[in-house]
Design a protein around this nucleic acid. Structure first.
Lengths: 194, 194
DNA sequence: CCTACCGATCGGTAGG
DNA sequence: CCTACCGATCGGTAGG
């Protein structure tokens, strides 16, 4: 399992430092020595907690991706109007970005270093997320709460914006998470409302 | 100079292959041997055309960044209404993304591998682009063509979407560039119109 | 443009 | 958790 619930505190600590370094320098440019230095041990000692460098990246990415999927599926399965589901999904994204900025930053580009089964699992998560979002969108259209515009482009636009929230939270500290939520909902949804 | 106008065809060829490989595997994970193989020479032969691996990344990123800045500044300095400038800027972004998808993909994450003066130059370009875009936005607000919403969030949202167009063009081939332009203008701007 | 080669660094292992 | 060490690969140089 990839859930942090079943990890030793030492492993959690390794993943946390690794995520920060991967964000700063990229996965390939970060050495195990770099990570070990942050943790406060020698590089070979990391192997008491991990099996490979790849495993570190895999654990970080699959853990955060599964968090996203389970949280959006919860919303999609709730008894709500489609438009309110979309609002909730945006709110969730802001909160996850706020709580895990380093891990989420890796979603943007570092997943290309996953291989074989790990890559497949990751891409499956991504598809599941997009599918859930598309469900909500279609429900909202059917319920006549948003305009009939190009579905692909509208969803692409919303998800593109959400994907970058993590980088924006640190840049503009004056926006707290609640303010940012409501502003994004306004910008992303109100233009689509009937 | 970084403009491709002053490069030998061999160097242009090296940069083109490098951009594609950097997109696929990342800058750090791409070796000079990988690039040389694509070009059809041995790795040391690249040094007849380049001075370092860093220079390849620098040339690619500064060239594409300067293309973006000069094109948006042209629009900003034109005699147009703000709202029409924004539409033109979106149209330009789609076209540049269509013509240079690999180079633009590096804007997202690989610029972190630039150093010192190169990094500064790159970030300056980025600031200049954002400044020009912000000018147009404020002009459109002043001319009462778009609503008074949070300026930072609105601009952030538009630029986030534009930044990802390159990845979307290859995924959905059924959209040609003209169609995509008008759809994006609708989605990104119409929600803001008064 | 090539072959031959360099020092440095990498992820990972052995053995305690 | 450490020290010692391994083969492989890296960016880059020498010399022609």
């Amino acid at each position: 399992m990839t859930s942090t619930l079943f990890m030793s505190t030492r492993k959690v600590e390794i993943l946390r430092h690794a995520a920060r370094l991967f964000r700063q320098k990229g996965y390939q440019a970060t050495s195990l020595k770099d990570i070990a230095r942050e943790v406060g041990v020698e590089a070979p000692s990391l192997y008491n907690h991990i099996n490979s460098k790849h495993e570190i990246l895999k654990d970080i990415l699959l853990d955060i991706a599964s968090k996203f999927v389970s949280s959006i599926q919860d919303v999609d399965h709730a008894s709500l109007k489609g438009i309110n589901k979309i609002e909730k999904a945006i709110s969730q994204y802001v909160n996850l970005s706020y709580n895990h900025p380093n891990e989420i930053s890796l979603i943007t580009g570092e997943w290309v270093h996953l291989e074989d089964a790990d890559l497949k699992t990751y891409l499956d998560f991504r598809d599941q997320y997009e599918t859930a979002f598309r469900n909500m969108y279609r429900q909202a259209v059917k319920e006549c709460d948003i305009k009939e515009v190009n579905e692909d482009v509208a969803i692409f636009s919303i998800l593109s914006t959400l994907r970058w929230i993590y980088s924006w939270i640190n840049k503009n500290r004056r926006y707290n998470v609640v303010e940012l939520e409501s502003q994004l909902i306004t910008i992303l949804i109100d233009g689509l409302r009937r």
